[in-house]
Amino acid sequence: MPRPELQAPPEIFYNDTEARKYTTSSRIIEIQAKISERALELLNIPNDGVPRLLLDIGCGSGLSGETLSENEHHWIGFDISQSMLDVALEREVEGDLLLADMGQGLGLRPGVIDGAISISAIQWLCYADKSSHEPMARLKAFFGSLYRCLTRGARAVLQLYSENMNQSEMIMKAAMRAGFAGGVVVDFPHSTKARKAYLVLTCGPSSTQTSLPKGKGEDGETCSDDDESDDDDEQTVGIYDRHRPAKRSKITKKGKGKAWVLKKKNQMRNKGYTVPPDTKYTARKRKNHF
């Protein structure tokens, strides 16, 4: 099955049937809970026992928000799918729910939110589902409004399934332009199934935040894959690695040259991606074969 993002807009894809299927799968519940716990950990909220006001962006049926409630935090959830929110109501989640499109920006006052998580949702912004949609403009509206509503020094941790490098770069660029500092933390980078990428963003001067936390399993430590092997669930949440389409290649007449390739590879390495080593073969010209 193709990625959900390629099938239909989110408010159509997550209809009543899909919303129920999503929220009754014990595997999905478990996976989303694990990711949310990790995201909360990466938010790095001071351990002072004070509950905070947080956002859950693309909160869906409330699986991710539940982790916030379990940790005593109050939260406001944004989602574009009425069906997902209906399931959240049924499940009596503790956060407040808003039917809203994050690509239109979050309508919140400046400087009032202590942190934000988003689990398996923001990759949807990379797709133009209507003729009026421009992904870059929607990313800008989203990150700009997110930056404004957070208190200085607050973090946003966004776990996402991007389809390719272009998308993650596009998302990162939009976040940086909005003023965020930060980068990508990748957990279990060596595992196709367990690999999870988190954008860890800090609002305000980057001087207060020293370095990006380390991804889990970077040293080859593995996590058990067997509990994430149901194809049906993967289709719904978006664990796509096995079906990932071939990378689209840009066709340029001259090519970009070795220096450019080395620079890009380095950038990617710095962002925490696994990049093949630089060798004498890197970016070398290929003969034309006819």
């Binding site: 406001i76 407040d96 808003l98 920006g105 006052r109 009032v112 409004s145 509503c149």
Partner: peptide, 21 residues
């Protein structure tokens, strides 16, 4: 929706300057 959330919401229609409360 609780009043906590209402207190944070502001209208974000394009061009609106005073969207609060």
């Amino acid at each position: 929706m609780r009043l906590l959330t209402h207190n944070m919401l502001s209208c974000n229609i394009k061009g609106v300057k005073n969207g609060y409360p």
